[in-house]
Amino acid sequence: MKSKFLQNFLSETGDISRFTARFFAEAFRPRYELSEFLKQCFFIGYKSLPLVAITAFIMGLVITIQSRPTLVEFGAEAWLPKMVSVSLVREIAPVITALICAGKVGSGIGAELGSMKVTEQIDAMEVSGTNPFKYLVATRVLAATLTIPILVVLADAVSLYGGYLGANIHGVVSWDLFWNQVFDTLAFSDIIPSILKTFFFGFAIGIIGCYKGYNSNKGTEGVGRSANSAVVISSLLVFILDLLAVQIIDLLKLT
């Protein structure tokens, strides 16, 4: 039983690695599917914006409200904007945004490509002599890799605004004071690594969604399973990549 699980795990890891290698081999060679890439940027980026913004706003608000009593206990209420901004920018906004995208984008890509696979649309592209991998996979993975970091920057801004409102629910912090403290606290060493890691989050979400959809089988049941496992695996990968990123940042003494 255990050996079967291990065998499946290793086999799946090998397949995903080969799929990723094929992405790098195909994505940067002409012909470039620019219009499909822009369309995917619109779907992945623009269409996810309201969900990401609402989630980020609530996270900023809630983190501020939850942190305040502890800081008040130590007489450190004035540190609230500093603490909240560091937690949001370094960790909470990137990870929460990536998880939201793993759910929305990963499942969307998995289900879309999965249904194209089972209805032979991918085969139809293949037999018409066009490269479905380039058209479907390369564009979606690149779009996810490039738009998720932009969503994270927006989520950072919106969550900090939520933090400002949260700080003013039980206390009074002026607009200028809040933002002065936020920008005094945040350094490039907080912002750059946290954004850099989101490129990897985006890539992982895109590649897993595409892998699961592109290799979907067993009819409509398979499509559901592809969408589901795309979300589960990409969410797990987001946490694993985050852990690695934190370790690397720590080792390089970037914080």
């Binding site: 879309e112 249904s115 194209m116 209805t119 032979e120 649309q121 085969d123 139809a124 592209m125 293949e126 037999v127 018409s128 002599g129 066009t130 490269n131």
Partner: peptide, 24 residues
């Protein structure tokens, strides 16, 4: 290989049982 196959496939049409029209 893939690119040689693509050139041949441009000369061979294939009609699928399910039609396989692109839904989107």
């Amino acid at each position: 290989n893939h690119s040689q196959l693509d050139k041949i496939r441009a000369k061979v049409g294939f009609l699928f049982q399910s039609n396989a029209l692109y839904d989107s």
